[in-house]
Amino acid sequence: MNRPMNGVPMVQLFDVTKLYGTNSHWSAGVRNVSLAARSGELVLLLGPSGSGKTTLLTLIAGLIQPTSGTVELFGENILGFTQTALQELRAQRIGFVFQTFHLIDSLTAAENVELALRFGGKTRSQASHRARELLDQLDIGSLSRKLPPTLSQGEKQRVAIARAFANNPDLIIADEPTASLESTQGFEIIRRLRDYARKFSRCVIVASHDARIITFADRIIQLKDGELTVTS
């Protein structure tokens, strides 16, 4: 796959529906959703708990298959991708920030970042150099050898950001990244994500129920009960 150009749609969903359930009972995670997210913009998926934000993110990341509709990433329909192709796509072109950061407690801050770089295909020395560089940029270079349980929430947040930026991904998917943070820290993480999108012409999709961060979004998509209600 080629690197995206400026303003090119990087994520496109066409009439996507995801149903959960068994033969006797079905419920919709998302229903008939169509959207596009372009390079250089931070798209905010806003909605209350259970509105389908996380389902939408996991569909975009190729972690689940839609019941109907099409998901295109970087101009290609990913529904036909093999598991290996999807795994390589995630490793090389998508960065993740999880709700509670999900750092690996047994690895140091630097090793957490290096692991993502190694998954992305970097050599050990390249990964080590890049991890140190990223942690320095985020002003936590001195904490590189610390284990996550010894870090504060704010420090963990920066390590998680460093891990998401590690492979310079075309797309960053962030699931409730401000949920476990104070306002200041929450704003900082959103600001960094927005800056990344704008500075490097990348796309960032943030799912949140936190209305305080809407000022940072280039576009807001509201969801309710699995359906897209407002796009602005």
Binding site: L63, Q87, R90, A91, F96, S106
Partner: peptide
Amino acid sequence: ERRKDFATMKALGSSGAF
């Protein structure tokens, strides 16, 4: 015990072989 770690590594793009 490390279910969360394994899920995270899978999401980040870890290969099954790893």
